[in-house]
Design a protein around this nucleic acid. Structure first.
Lengths: 225, 225
DNA sequence: ATTAAGATTTAGACTAATCTAAACTTTGGT
DNA sequence: ACCAAAGTTTAGATTAGTCTAAATCTTAAT
């Protein structure tokens, strides 16, 4: 009994957060390493090891000690449910309650764990069963599929070419307000005017104005066309 | 150090639930007894004692051992904040998302602990700063005051007298659906046609129909006029 | 005035989730 | 091929909240 290899603990909000983060870091199938998971979760690596062990016993992840962790089918299903909640809530807060896109992440971060399936359904229906959230992040469907989106970033657009912004992969409120202030939001048409060498800034024209964006920032902005 | 009389723990959802329940059971100032609190919270009396001790150390309640517990000003402030959240959320779910009044309690029970002040404000504004929830329960104001409501129940209305329903103090979904089915909802005009002796049923006419209500149920239905 | 029933508290254990410190494994550079 | 640095796991402690079982207090009935 003291050996304590018994119990299937419940899917708590913390468990959901680990699964969601493993999914988002590993696109569900790559191995995710302990330290990077610890950084994203704001816990120490030893805490991750402990939790990963528990998740493995629950059959939600597979853990190859010293090499990393990845989700099982069950783990992925839960992760996608949580992500669906998160993105539906973000969109709902913007559409129904007048939040701005930089305000919704924190709120959704807690609400995602506590809304019932019934509330999820009402929100989805109220929004007309949307496919993307305010940042352009795709919303997983009820059946657990996640529509693929663009993978080309602003930094990959050839100079003197236009593209339409479809997604901004950033959840930092400050940066979201900054790019929104420049007109860089999903749906906007922009033209890349210059890409500086040595990982330098990417210049884009939005309407009549030209703005220089840090390369790493430009890489979080996904486009199509 | 082992004597462990140190730490101010945080105001967790569980702490909020205890404060809310103490408020609702004691109208804030009466002593609330351990066993009744334990029953309402669905925990054992010893758990209540432990928590009450912690709440007292946090300055949120005063505890007279063996005699009961009541809220301090700080405890009452938190309790009213949580109740405000609860009732705003219940009303919002009904008004904005098409829930029925029997569905909203469970949902509000968890959401009340996690919405931000900003979301609370948006919800209140969206509803036009309402004063009562779908059950007629008054919504505490931002300043921590709680409007007084009717105290006369259907069982106190003289026979052959009309009254307007203002509040149904019940959170059981089954019973709520039942009385709503009879037309007994806040705002409805009813006439008490008979009150049976020996704590017997109260008969009321709603529209053209007459229904007999159990005395205890009638006592949860508050009226004015 | 006593006592038994009922209510309350204490004592000690358990779980989920975290931490620090120490031990172990992998890997990349010479 | 070795070995130090980086990454990972183990060991053991801590906190919030709960439980069971035992001890203690209050009260109401005789």
């Amino acid at each position: 009994m003291t050996t304590a290899e018994n119990l299937a603990q419940a899917v708590t909000p913390v468990v959901e957060d680990y699964l969601k983060t493993i999914y988002l870091m590993g696109r569900a199938h790559e191995q995710v390493k302990t330290v990077s998971l610890a950084e994203r979760m704001n816990v120490k690596p030893s805490s991750v090891t402990a939790m990963v062990k528990a998740l493995a016993e629950m059959g939600l992840v597979e853990h190859e000690p010293y090499y990393g962790v990845h989700l099982t089918a069950n783990g992925e299903r839960i992760a996608l449910e949580v992500i669906r909640h998160h993105r539906l809530i973000e969109l709902y807060l913007v559409e129904a309650l007048g939040f701005t896109w930089d305000e919704v992440h924190e709120e959704a971060e807690v609400l995602e764990h506590v809304i019932s399936e019934k509330l999820e359904a009402r929100i989805a229906a109220h929004l007309g069963h949307p496919t993307v959230d305010p940042h352009g992040d795709p919303i997983p469907k009820l059946d657990g599929t996640l529509p693929r989106t663009a993978t080309r970033s602003l930094a990959d657009v050839p100079e003197r070419t236009s593209a339409r912004i479809v997604r901004v992969c950033d959840q930092d409120a400050e940066r979201l307000r900054y790019v929104a202030g420049l007109g860089v939001v999903p749906g906007a048409e922009v033209t890349v005017t210059a890409i500086a060498p040595f990982e330098g800034p990417v210049s884009v024209r939005v309407g009549k104005k030209i703005h220089a964006l840090d390369r790493r920032l430009a890489q979080t902005i996904l486009v199509e066309d």
